[in-house]
């Protein structure tokens, strides 16, 4: 090979200069550049309609309100109020407990269902998948509302049992308590838990299961040594997908919770309606968000540790 790296023809030197040519060449050469150009509209709206408002929420949580006027500033009044009011803390704690129960319940119920579709259904799999995904997309409000008419004082259950002659007076304990909230939420979020678990099960290479059997595992051992560890990512995703949004829910407690089943979401909503203390509402939102983030991080750390220990 002859060395001729130095002598570029004149025409070349001319073509590669000039700002337009440089920009064009830059655009062609840089994949990150092209990628971010293409992402920019979506990112922009995410920042404008989500990122910035949530950041601003954080700022407002340090403001105070007197009658109808906001007082901008950086004071911890709202956070102190939260620490002083035991019932605020109880409400947050209850929300976390309820969401925790709901999460465990939905994941426990969803896993066998996802397992069934992934491994047992061979014919008409598409129909099964669609059947469990449809509720995922349809009205959350209606799914919750259905339980109000089921569990209500004169609802489906009470009137049905009365009609059958099993009860004299309507059962009052079935509605307006944390239990009703848990059942309703577990139903409403069922589809959210199935999908991630199903995806992770479906991804498992079937030859791994055959290999485990071949190496002497019983079906039970195989499940705990291969299937479950390999689908843990789906279980973790499902848990987060159910836990995080349910902590802040206010529709379900408002409809079926009663005073004992109220959650932090109801308190936040109240600050923006009757109580009308927006900075306090902002502070409660921030506190909830922090609590959720803390729990999620702890959960991720914990599951990661378990998983790495097992292997």
């Amino acid at each position: 090979m002859v060395d001729r790296s130095l002598a570029l023809p004149d025409s070349v030197a001319k073509k590669t200069t000039g700002p337009f040519q440089w920009l064009k060449s830059m655009y062609l050469r840089s994949e990150p550049f092209r990628g971010y150009v293409m992402l920019s509209p979506t990112l922009l709206i995410m920042i404008v309609a989500l990122g910035a408002p949530v950041l601003f929420l954080f700022v407002v949580s340090f403001w105070t309100q007197h009658l109808l006027d906001f007082t901008p500033g950086f004071v911890f009044d709202n956070y102190i109020t939260f620490l002083e009011k035991g019932n605020y803390q109880n409400l947050l704690w209850r929300s976390i407990k309820i969401s925790g129960f709901v999460t465990i319940l939905t994941v426990l119920l969803a896993y066998p269902m996802a397992y069934f579709i992934a491994f047992r259904v061979t014919k008409n799999k598409l129909i099964w998948i669609i059947l469990i995904t449809v509720p995922f997309w349809t009205s959350y409000l209606l799914r919750v509302f259905a339980w109000k008419i089921i569990l209500g004082y004169n609802g489906v259950v009470n009137s049905g049992l009365a009609e059958l002659g099993w009860i004299e007076a309507p059962l009052e304990f079935i509605l307006y308590n944390p239990f009703a909230v848990v059942v309703t939420l577990a139903h409403a979020w069922a589809a959210f838990a199935i999908l991630p678990i199903y995806v992770s099960l479906e991804k498992i290479d079937r030859s791994l299961l055959e290999a485990a059997t071949d190496l002497g595992d019983t079906p039970r051992q195989r499940f705990f040594r291969i299937t479950l560890p390999l689908s843990m990512a789906g279980v973790v995703a499902a848990s987060l997908l159910v836990f995080i949004p349910t902590v802040g829910d206010f529709v379900t407690p408002a409809l079926v919770g009663g005073p004992k089943g109220l959650m932090i979401g109801n308190l936040i909503q109240l600050q923006f309606a009757k109580a009308n203390n927006w900075p306090m509402g902002a502070a409660l939102s921030v506190i909830s968000l922090m609590a959720i983030t803390g729990i999620v991080c702890a959960f991720l750390w914990f599951t990661k540790r378990i998983r790495t220990q097992d292997l």
């Binding site: 992402l39 989500l50 949530v54 601003f56 949004p245 829910d249 923006f272 909830s288």
Partner: peptide, 25 residues
């Protein structure tokens, strides 16, 4: 970036709602 775009799927709706309400105001 992908996680950021996916956040609306997990952030509780009420928090996004009040955040937007405040900023709109």
């Amino acid at each position: 970036v992908m996680s950021f775009i996916m956040t609306p799927l997990v952030v509780p709706g009420i928090i996004v709602g009040v955040a937007l309400l405040i900023i709109a105001n």
